[in-house]
Amino acid sequence: MSEGQIKKFMYVNRKAPHGTIYALESLEVVLIAAAFDQDVSLAFMDDGVYQLKKGFNTKGIEVKNFQPTYRALDDYDVNKLYVEKEALEARGLTAEDMVVPVEIMSRAEIGKLMETQDIVLSF
């Protein structure tokens, strides 16, 4: 991509953490791509909202706890985090359960935002 041209990137996260590698892979791609100073937003839909559920303790399953890294996203100027309202409701979760500040949106609202993106990355 040519210098100075800012594109809108949206990462769509729909998988629960740990059960598959998608959550961690997405987070790593976001951090790597943040070096390119693009307009980045993250959407958390379906089981993806579980990625932000506070209180991971991964000692027992012996994998790295990557949840604290979500709190570093702000340092990387990634601060547009959208969480699907319907997904939270279906899982008995609320904004207070989220490990970082997020904006809660309906599926339809996220859908509209998705339409405005230059690039959508699916995880």
Binding site: A16, H18, K53, G55, N57, K59, G60, I61
Partner: peptide
């Protein structure tokens, strides 16, 4: 499985009647 609940931050919201196991 208790370890999987802890890893996902949900060990404190287990449904009544479910027995945690290690």
């Amino acid at each position: 499985l208790q370890a999987d609940m802890e890893a996902r931050g949900v060990a404190d919201r287990v449904l009544d009647g479910v027995t945690p196991v290690d």
